[in-house]
Amino acid sequence: MNIFRLLGDLSHVLAILILLLKIWKTRSCAGISGRSQLLFAIVYTARYLDLFTSFVSPYNSIMKILFIAASYGTIYLMFMKFKATYDHNHDTFRIEFLVLPCIVLALAVNHEFSPLEILWTFSIYLESVAILPQLFMVSKTGEAESITSHYLFALGSYRALYLLNWVYRYYAENHYDWIAIVAGIVQTVLYCDFFYLYITKVLKGKKLQLPA
């Protein structure tokens, strides 16, 4: 555990809390992509099946359970409890275009051709692109509420901080995993446009609005 890794994890927890609080306090999931949230639930389910096969630390297990529980909690709030507020007319990204290539890629490029390893690899690939339906939704409506922007910033920062963690671990521990690193770079790059808008607009008190 190093500072980048810890900050990355905390940023991820913060993103989850912001999202759940936004939905709960405003009794609305307007502006949130249910398709991205569905992909995240698939990601954590596929990745953390190792909860049953290997134990790393209490911290590791608690975080995994938290991420799985929060993703299903979000799904429940969006598709059941606050279903009426779900903006599905703007949430139209075809997720099969993300899921199917990730399945094929995970079968083709992995560390070991075993069920758990392939599921882990699939989850890493899918996570890297899971935010696309959400970003597509923001670009379609041309704006995002500030709270949604904070959520996206925290969620994007998490993998960016993991990149620093991997640089650190490469030098300090000679540990590296090309699959996670390449996917992490892709994931972070997808947020770059949003990061720019967040820093130049939202942090200056303006609403995130895309240029017409």
Binding site: F67, E112, N165
Partner: peptide, 10 residues
């Protein structure tokens, strides 16, 4: 552990 190394990251 099944894999080649421990997946200690999240």
């Amino acid at each position: 552990l099944k894999g080649k190394y421990l997946k200690d990251e999240l």
